[in-house]
């Protein structure tokens, strides 16, 4: 930075095109949504696909830069302030996600209390077997990711990789089971308030499982490539926190949507 030595550990990046590229992607996606909902379905779908491609491309590039920077910095003794910034950032991001779900849960509880019978008698509710198995899957994945983390801390990278693989595989299985459940449900999102709340909650949760799974896959790939050290593996931890968050939301969902009403 302009030639003289900087006397702080903060990292000030150079200008970057990737944030505005992702903005463009998000903007195109939104215009596509409008078109899909109200005007031309074809134009809408095209814009949505284009927007998503631009968005994902921009994000991938952006994250590649981040990873390259952390590699260039090395994984030994990173500046403490940078590590802290990342940690704070991830924690507050999860707080915002938690509040997003809190809104939907609030709506769910309101509607639950508001309706005289819940589930409504015209709804053929889903059996609890599959969600119970899914609960076990997510809880197990919570164990495997912790196992992987401990293996990494102990320096046993092979084991860390194995358990990381198991974790995201469990995520994929969860998603497949959920897709199976959706395909066989006797009610849909437009079957009154029950269908609305059910699909909104499980749908957004499923999307978060998908995002978490992708994060874990990236963590796995980075483990394979030799990133991270015993002491410094922020990305690994961030993915694990996110995964635990997704896990906790699911437990809430399982209890309040599947178990308690029936």
């Amino acid at each position: 930075m302009a030639g003289h030595k900087q006397d702080h550990d903060f990292y000030i990046p150079n200008s970057s095109i990737w944030p505005p590229v992702t903005c463009l992607g998000a903007g195109l996606f939104m215009f596509g949504m409008v078109s899909l909902l109200k005007f031309s379905s074809f134009a809408g779908k095209s814009l949505i696909v284009l927007g998503l491609l631009v968005l994902v491309f921009g994000m991938v590039q952006w994250f590649r830069v981040l990873i390259a920077e952390s590699r260039a910095r090395g994984f030994v003794n990173p500046p403490r302030v940078l590590d802290l910034a990342n940690r704070y950032g991830m924690v507050f991001f999860i707080v915002s996600e938690l509040m997003f779900f809190a809104g939907f849960f609030a709506a769910y509880f309101y509607i639950y209390g508001f309706n005289l019978e819940w589930p409504p008698s015209n709804i053929e509710t889903l059996a609890a077997h599959l969600p119970a198995i899914n609960t076990l899957i997510l809880l197990t994945s919570g164990v495997t990711i912790t196992w992987s983390h401990h293996a990494l801390i102990k320096g046993n990278r092979a084991e860390a990789r194995k358990f990381m693989f198991a974790t995201w595989l469990l995520g994929v299985v969860f998603l497949l089971f959920q897709a199976y459940e959706y395909a066989h449900a006797a009610f849909s999102i437009d079957s009154g308030a029950y269908g609305s709340t059910f699909y909104m909650l499980t749908g957004f949760h499923g999307f978060h499982v998908f995002v978490g799974t992708v994060m874990l896959m990236v963590a796995h790939a980075r483990l394979n490539r030799g990133d991270f050290t015993k002491e410094n593996h922020f990305y690994f931890e961030a993915a694990a926190w996110y995964w635990h968050f997704v896990d906790v939301v699911w437990v809430g969902l399982f209890l309040f949507v599947y178990i308690i009403p029936s």
Partner: peptide, 28 residues
């Protein structure tokens, strides 16, 4: 994020047949 949730529910009520805010479907 709570506002985002509220307007998302409004969007799906308008376009995807959900009933969060629709009395007929058990919403309010």
């Amino acid at each position: 994020p709570v506002l985002a949730g509220a307007v998302t529910m409004l969007l799906t009520d308008r376009n995807f047949g959900t009933s969060f805010f629709n009395m007929a479907g058990g919403g309010d």
